[in-house]
Simulated scan of single mutants.
Amino acid sequence: MCGLCGIAGTAPHWTDGVPAPSAPDTPTRRRDRQARVRGLNRVLRPFGLTASDWQGNAYVIATQTGRSEIVADTAHLWQAAARLRGRACDPLDLDLLDRLEAL
């Protein structure tokens, strides 16, 4: 299945918060998602990767050379990051956590 088909119609991941039932695309939800992308970028930057929102339904993870993958939610982000880098990315690495805490 291609990335678009896998994303279409999926329920929100728990990390995406709980949108209002009557308005899934409210300003609050967009603002929360933008804040989530900023946080993801803080963690991904040391790995040479970036994240961006893709139509409020997914994330695009990209390398500095332009290779990218669409992931449905943050649960799939680290697998895509490892594929793009060619090696594992450990978001719980103590050195990384120390650097992030110092920011």
Rank of each mutant, 00 (worst) to 15 (best):
D73P: 07
P24S: 03
Q55N: 14
L44Y: 00
T28P: 05
R45Q: 12
G66N: 01
A58N: 00
G66T: 06
P19D: 09
R42K: 14
P91R: 01
H13V: 10
R31F: 13
G39T: 08
T74D: 05
R31A: 12
H76I: 01
D32A: 14
C2Q: 14
N57E: 13
A75M: 08
V37P: 01
E101F: 13
T74Q: 04
N41Y: 08
F47A: 03
V18E: 15
D95F: 02
A88C: 08
S22T: 15
C2W: 10
A81L: 03
G3K: 06
D90P: 07
A81E: 04
V43E: 07
S68F: 11
T63A: 02
P21Y: 07
L94E: 15
V18Q: 15
T50H: 03
G9E: 10
V18W: 12
L92W: 11
F47S: 04
G6Y: 05
R45S: 11
Q55D: 13
E69K: 04
R31L: 14
G48V: 04
A58E: 01
D93E: 11
C5F: 13
C2G: 08
T15D: 07
R45D: 09
G56E: 07
G9R: 08
I70N: 09
N41P: 00
L94Y: 13
W14S: 15
S22P: 04
D73V: 01
G3N: 12
Q55V: 10
F47Q: 05
H76S: 07
A35H: 14
I7H: 01
A102F: 07
S52M: 09
A72F: 01
L84S: 00
R42C: 07
A8K: 14
G3C: 07
C89H: 04
G39P: 00
L84W: 05
A20I: 05
T65W: 12
A81N: 01
Q64M: 13
A82D: 05
R99D: 12
G3Q: 12
R33H: 06
L103M: 11
D25F: 12
L92H: 15
D95Q: 10
Q64R: 15
L4T: 11
T74I: 05
